[in-house]
Design a protein around this nucleic acid. Sequence first.
DNA 1: ACGATGTATGTAAAGGTTTACATAAGGCTT
DNA 2: AAGCCTTATGTAAACCTTTACATACATCGT
Lengths: 343, 343
Amino acid sequence: MSNSTPATIEDVARIAEVSIATVSRAIHMPEKVANSTRLKVNQAIAITGYTTNAMARSLRLGRSNMILVVAPDIGDPNFSNILVGLENEARAHGYGILIGHTQNDAQRGLEYLKFFNSNQAAGLILFTGILPFGHQTMTARLPPSVGVFEPVFNGGIPYVGVDDTEGARKAVDLLLAEGHRKIAFIGDSRTRLAYTRRRMGYDAGLDAAGIPPDTRIVLEGDGTIESGRHAVEQLFMRDTLPTAFMCVNDQTAIGVMVGLGARGYDIPRDFSVTGFDDVPQAVFISPPLTTIRQPRTAIGKQAMALLLELLSDGRPTETEILLRPDLVVRNSVSAPSRNWSKR
Amino acid sequence: MSNSTPATIEDVARIAEVSIATVSRAIHMPEKVANSTRLKVNQAIAITGYTTNAMARSLRLGRSNMILVVAPDIGDPNFSNILVGLENEARAHGYGILIGHTQNDAQRGLEYLKFFNSNQAAGLILFTGILPFGHQTMTARLPPSVGVFEPVFNGGIPYVGVDDTEGARKAVDLLLAEGHRKIAFIGDSRTRLAYTRRRMGYDAGLDAAGIPPDTRIVLEGDGTIESGRHAVEQLFMRDTLPTAFMCVNDQTAIGVMVGLGARGYDIPRDFSVTGFDDVPQAVFISPPLTTIRQPRTAIGKQAMALLLELLSDGRPTETEILLRPDLVVRNSVSAPSRNWSKR
DNA sequence: ACGATGTATGTAAAGGTTTACATAAGGCTT
DNA sequence: AAGCCTTATGTAAACCTTTACATACATCGT
């Protein structure tokens, strides 16, 4: 039963009194084998506890059953929930998942290429908006890949995410509905497509409400807590103050709230704030943050499903799968206060 | 350079004008090969862009360069930071990491065993206090394994974590120093060794302060937010109320704070609360939670280092590596209020 | 100068699969 | 009943390494 060395296909063949080819076929192309023999083989498998050696199989097939997942930072709160979606879907199809993180270091990204050269991984899930490999290799034969959250620059790589423009639009529409007219946009960036799109949603919302754009209250930022805090400082040094802060993501929103809090303001009484992502912390900070939810587990599942499809079909069916972002209303938004709206 | 099919050891051998055996030796046992030939081989490798096929290598060697990391829940906030420690250390030694999550489902844990049968993984990092495999297989030859956070039941498996008893002691000592005498312990459990040890620290602290144990304010719990909230409800139905809640982990503490908040109490004015773990949320909830920090990245690094050692030496050098838990003081603890200390 | 020792390389087997091709047997058509 | 097609199985090569063993040559001690 549980011998010292794992059973091989030959052990199964001997017990089932067939050839190893038949065993292989009974496992992977059951319809090609007679019922009676299939039965014998299955029994022999049960007796020996045989599992096919994935190494030998991958070697022979020239492809493995592993998917590499590369993120800039595994510690990112957005990461883990995606992972469960990815893992569930992968395992359901007999795939395992391998993880790597680049820390935005191109050299480091390059190291992960070896997983493909050596057939250790069959496909790639990318969390970053850029290819983590150097430029020369970029032109080389890339593994089947799918992006998550953001389209991948220079792509040709399909991606699964949320409709960023629509999500941003929901946030700005909420603020408008509350009566805000001076709405800052914090975290503008042309280097991240997702952020660019959120900005587009913001612009569109303002436009639809007939509010002329005011670039004085549109501030750049890289999506960190610090960038949010910094933006608040900058804004207070200018002549125009908004009544609401629409932030490109939750981290930025947290930074804004910290900055505002440090100046003694109350949210949402004095200022309204919205985020984007719905990170796990969003519900715990005070006040709880009104934000746009990324359906993370679903995104992970879809991304993996798309990749697996790519692996079997070769051609991607879709180049972009956009899930619907939901507005989650908590407590960081209210109508503009009289005082501040006067400014 | 970047041909359609990746270079094999034979390509390298042909170009370097040596045999494939020499190429293999030049790579893996450089000292066994003459300087001149080593040079030729290295050049040939550079020309072809050869990387050794990990599948073939693993097949031949009977072991892979992958480490399987199994956690009950990948979404767990404690998980991700550990992962970066694990991954960094693994990659530095040429290992990759594979992840799986069991969702506390034994059947599911069992599925991961196949990674070892088929030599897809060389070692195992376990996040759960129990072996995720069924009992019969438990006796079977297990892969080299290391536990994280908690000792593994029925183990013989070394583990890396924090000194739970000492950490708990620090928490209870802080509460005692603030003047608390009626300190509840929330989340007692005999099924999780880490929790049992935290309880021991609590007992020891009380004992050292000359306070007789009061089991009426020691409540069971499974470490979830809900269990914390539930404990509060139970406590209010009894005749004895504590002035402080020492919780077995941060989730429980959050639950307690929610429960107390729902009843209109203010923390830390009316009650003090401590947690354990220092999850990412702990700093964002209000009031920010005083808790015991797990040095997660360091734990991950150590655990992987220990496992790799195990893989090469065969024998574990240590059966238990305990890192020092630090008290991180935030804002959920103060002296007991006059009102409540009277009770 | 000869055998012994050591060093550098090559030859070939083994690791466990999958699958193209060959073979055998049974059923069908005429 | 002969030939043909289909279905079920077997044989053997290939995937790419690593390494035990064999070989060739140089060096050393006597």
